[in-house]
Amino acid sequence: MTGPVLSIRDLSVEIPTRAGVVKPVDGVSYDIGRGEILGVVGESGAGKSMAGNAVIGLLNPPAHISAGEIWLEGARIDPLQGEAMRRLRGKEIGMVFQDPLTSLNPLLKIGDQLTETILTHLPVSREEAERRAIAALDEVGIPGAAQRIDSYPHEFSGGMRQRVVIALALCAEPSLIIADEPTTALDVSVQAQIIALLRRLCRDRGTAVMLITHDMGVIAEAADRVAVMYAGRLAELGPVREVLTRPQHPYTDGLMASTPLASQARNRLHQIPGSMPRLTDLPDGCAFHPRCPLVQAQCRQNPHPNIGKGRAACWFPLIERAAE
């Protein structure tokens, strides 16, 4: 198969609340190809995790998918319910969350958790499953994997636990891994280890990865392409180097300029005025216009822009301005 592993088309998520219906995800489309890491970046409330949860069918009611389609390996998965979704979740989509403890059962040995997962999803014997469990732990870099399968989650350090979670996500050989802030809770030195691990696995196995994070540095180092989200919508989507060095959306531009650099001291940080609007009262027109330094009358009047021929969902992408 040559198509993308995951394809999201015009996905919208709605939550009915007292104050009316809010849309934490609004008309989002992106693809992830084989062996590709797509970084989904945005500030809190941008809807980046909500989009990931929608893919794996883990939206907390009353949140629900209100429009759009999700395709995995050429099959539509958004209408799946209950058992079918659960099967898909372990088999085709692996998950890595911020806190490794939420993904591991504290009462079971990690070897048993891995073997169970493999047996549930793959047609192999118990011996084979155990062999694969050890191989998976070995692959994620847990020293002495054959001995450690008898350990409980609390016997591992934070970084090692996250490796176990990655092994657990990988062991059923899924085609897609959704990693939601996988390194946020970890120390800098361990963070680098996990990023290197994700990249290696992705390259070696051809697994597609959706890497959700707020950390531009992690995106820059790990992702192939990046989707920048703002107020539930895509702001910019494109190859990571181009988006980060030559942003076309004023928001991406502001975000990059306000990130302090380790390589040089800046006298004063650039700042985007204001903060992200609450979903309950989004401004008319482009959601970014109240904070945009380059706002024009059209940005307030026209509906929210979509990504057109450029990379950015902006009426006046920076590339055109430069050309003028």
């Binding site: 700042q271 005025p273 204001g274 903060s275 609450r278 009262d281 109240p290």
Partner: peptide, 9 residues
């Protein structure tokens, strides 16, 4: 003045 933050209500 540039530091002023919009508060909703």
């Amino acid at each position: 003045a540039e530091l002023r933050v919009e508060t909703v209500e």
